[in-house]
């Protein structure tokens, strides 16, 4: 490994944008990843992430075929993610449907719509393919502004409503008895999760986004006694994985998204192994 990454970082704006995207997205990733991990709803994040392809495909179709030139795939992704979050929220909170069936339907139908729109739209859908597996090197200054605004919103919500979010996540029934609007907070957090997914899709892509949301938080959970500790550590780990993944992939000419996830998965695995060895040694010494 060399210093080429650092030399190019000074020279090329696209690399500076990528680094800034990694820095900013790790805040949203760590905070919302901790929430979805403790709530055990990573499958909801998976359904939202995959159905986003439908929105992207529709936006691109409307842009190319119907002449809505102001629409970009990112707009479609935002609309699809928020719509999916609303449907999932309504089903999980109010309906007596089988939640896993509805999630599978949203997951698969969203992707199928995406594929159909890509098929019906003339030309090669290169930009949509980059969203499937992500390309942090293609992040634009406008995207950075969007990520920064979302970071501010998520951090504000987490700081102002931390105690309520903790109670709603740990024991929603008790929170309701204390007069907390549990459904409202659940919806807000689901929408923020959807927006975070749209950000992370630009970093690691639709297919890998669940891993980037859950792996740093899962690793952080091994070292945290409180939710806020898990959130802070998860932000630091996300940042470390994204920057290290970017550096390794750039120097080795590998895809950045996949490199980031392999690093996160490897460190998670090592953490589990070390924790279990320590536990085993402790148990052995007490026998």
């Amino acid at each position: 490994m060399g210093i080429q990454f650092f030399l190019d970082l000074v020279r090329f704006p696209f690399l500076q944008h990528a680094l800034a995207a990694g820095l900013l997205s790790s805040i949203a990733c760590g905070l919302m990843g901790s929430y979805i991990t403790v709530k055990r709803i990573t499958y909801i994040a998976g359904a939202i992430a995959h159905c986003v392809l439908g929105g992207m495909g529709a936006a691109r179709y409307l842009n190319v075929v119907a002449g809505f030139s102001f629409l970009s795939p990112l707009h479609g992704a935002l609309a699809a993610a928020i719509l999916a979050a609303f449907i999932i929220g309504a089903v999980t909170l109010f309906s007596r449907q089988r939640v896993d069936t509805v999630l599978s339907a949203i997951w698969a139908v969203g992707m199928a719509l995406g594929v159909l729109f890509i098929y019906m739209t003339p030309g090669y859908a290169e930009d949509l393919m980059s969203y499937l597996f992500g390309n942090i090197l293609m992040v634009k200054p406008d995207d950075l502004f969007f990520i920064a605004v979302l970071d501010m919103v998520i951090m504000s919500v987490m700081i102002i409503f931390y105690n309520k979010i903790l109670a709603v996540s740990f024991d929603p029934e008790y929170a309701r008895i204390r007069g907390i609007a549990v459904h409202f907070y659940s919806f807000v957090l689901l929408i923020l999760t959807a927006l975070t997914i749209v950000i992370l899709i630009q970093v690691v892509g639709i297919v890998l986004v669940i891993a980037l949301l859950s792996l740093p938080a899962a690793t952080a959970s091994y070292f945290s006694k409180q939710l806020w500790q898990m959130m802070v550590l998860s932000v630091i780990l996300s940042l470390f994985y994204i920057i290290l993944g970017l550096y390794v992939s750039y120097d080795s000419n590998l895809p950045a998204g996949a490199t980031i996830i392999v690093l996160a998965g490897f460190i998670y695995l090592v953490t589990i192994i070390i924790k279990n060895i320590i536990k085993y040694k402790k148990r052995k010494s007490t026998v």
Binding site: V38, Y162, L166, S169, F170, R178, G179, Q226, L227
Partner: peptide, 21 residues
């Protein structure tokens, strides 16, 4: 597996709709 300590669980009993920060 929920990361919460004893003191934080007890404090949940102080929550009110207008509790912020």
């Amino acid at each position: 597996l929920f990361p919460v300590n004893v003191f934080d669980v007890v404090l949940m009993g102080c929550l009110k709709p207008r509790t912020f920060g």
